[in-house]
């Protein structure tokens, strides 16, 4: 069964490029433009196998999104990767504490991204 990946990023070009990369690799892809948009889509019934989120976004940051998503029983075990320019240790530690599955610092090349996804989504 095709795995569904939910990408959250406020940069239109990032959304387009990551979406294109993942679709070419055979994944179903949904997108949101910030944390608030993502949370609304999840609460409306979207059920992704994996969430990939940026950290620095307007309205709701990626870290707040992780915290809110992990508090929802339906998504408690859904893996969440961050894909961000944020490379400071304190933010990374906070992400880990809030329940992020991994931390990827942009730029990450397509094949490397796919490799990480396959590690966190066995059978993908």
């Amino acid at each position: 069964m095709t795995k569904k990946i939910f990408i959250v990023d406020d940069s239109a070009t990032m959304l387009m490029s990551v979406k294109g990369t993942l679709q070419m690799a055979g994944f179903d892809v949904e997108t949101a433009v910030d944390g608030q948009d993502a949370l609304e889509k999840l609460e409306a019934g979207l059920k992704p196998d994996l969430i990939i989120t940026d950290v620095n976004m307007p309205r709701m940051t990626g870290l707040e999104l992780i915290q809110r998503v992990k508090a929802l029983p339906a998504f408690r075990f859904t893996p969440i990767l961050t894909l961000t320019t944020e490379s400071q240790a304190a933010k990374r530690d906070e992400g880990k504490r809030l329940g992020a599955t991994g931390w990827l610092v942009k730029p990450v090349l397509g094949p490397d991204l796919i490799k990480v996804i396959k590690q966190v989504l066995p059978g993908a």
Binding site: T13, M14, S17, V18, G20, T21, M24, A25, K106, P107, V108, L109, G110, P111, D112, L113, I114
Partner: peptide, 9 residues
């Protein structure tokens, strides 16, 4: 193509 898209980051 996937590599090219990744480079856009």
């Amino acid at each position: 193509l996937s590599e090219a898209l990744g480079s856009i980051q």
